[in-house]
């Protein structure tokens, strides 16, 4: 397995936010995790990304124990719900940001960012500052910035949560295209049931700090906890 998370526990004071978290993920796959606000999704992602230290447990990435590794050395990029574009840099420089941190030669940066702008359908927007871009464009630049560094693992924390329905749908399609094009392994956290089903090769459900990963989508649909049955009943009742 490419990513192995073993018995991770994380508490804040007396409150145990993540309880015995264990799962694994194959390379180039997306695990979508469904969960309500406050169930521990963000804490789980931040712990895997190295932004929070676990109280106990182990994280293995491509066979290497990264539990104690600093976030800048993990090659795991964490994407927030907010696009967090750097306001003092234009779209091109935002995408090139991670590459410049790694001191990649200028020619290669130009080539990579140019290719990324094309993949993100952002040609002609390179010189625009973040405040001149729409919500969807900003989120695409944010994706580009994360993917251009070729991360081993991408952690997405409700990345489309702030977008309108139409833009959200287009971004979901774009994300599927990019994951295939750039061979991305990712954890995709969402509280949207449909998005969880659409985005993941595997699906997990998180509740009260406990994660259940389903071996196939049918099990997820059958589990009454996930709320899929309620949705089916609701939409069926409208016929």
């Amino acid at each position: 397995m490419f990513l192995e998370v073993q018995h991770i526990i994380k508490s804040f004071g007396a409150e145990k936010v993540v309880k015995d978290l264990s799962f694994s993920l194959k390379a180039k796959q997306t695990l979508s995790i469904l969960g309500k606000s406050g169930c521990g999704k963000t804490t789980m992602l931040k712990t895997i990304g190295g932004l929070l230290s676990p109280d106990s447990g182990k994280i293995l990435l491509d066979g290497e124990d990264i539990t104690e590794t600093r976030p800048e050395k993990r090659n795991i990029v964490y994407l927030y719900q907010e696009d967090l574009l750097f306001p003092h840099l234009n779209a091109y420089e935002n995408i090139a940001f991670g590459l410049r941190l790694k001191k990649i030669p200028e020619g290669l940066i130009k080539e990579k960012v140019g290719h990324m702008l094309h993949s993100l359908e952002l040609e002609g927007q390179a010189e625009k500052m973040p405040n001149q871009l729409s919500g969807g464009q900003r989120q695409r630049v944010s994706f580009g910035r994360a993917i251009s560094t070729n991360p081993s693992l991408l952690l997405l924390d409700e990345p489309f949560g702030s977008l309108d329905t139409g833009t959200r749908q287009r971004m979901q399609e774009l994300f599927k295209k990019l994951t295939a094009e750039y061979d991305i392994t990712s954890l995709f956290v969402t509280h949207d049931l449909k998005e969880a089903v659409l985005m993941g090769d595997q699906i997990g459900f998180m509740q009260n700090g406990l994660l259940t990963v389903y071996s196939d989508k049918k099990d997820f649909i059958q589990d009454p906890q996930t709320g899929v049955q309620n949705e089916i009943e609701f939409w069926g009742g409208l016929r």
């Binding site: 932004l51 800048e72 990029v77 991670g98 941190l101 910035r145």
Partner: peptide, 9 residues
């Protein structure tokens, strides 16, 4: 945090 995960010290 974002800069850290992008590889920045």
């Amino acid at each position: 945090d974002l800069v850290a995960t992008l590889g920045g010290n």
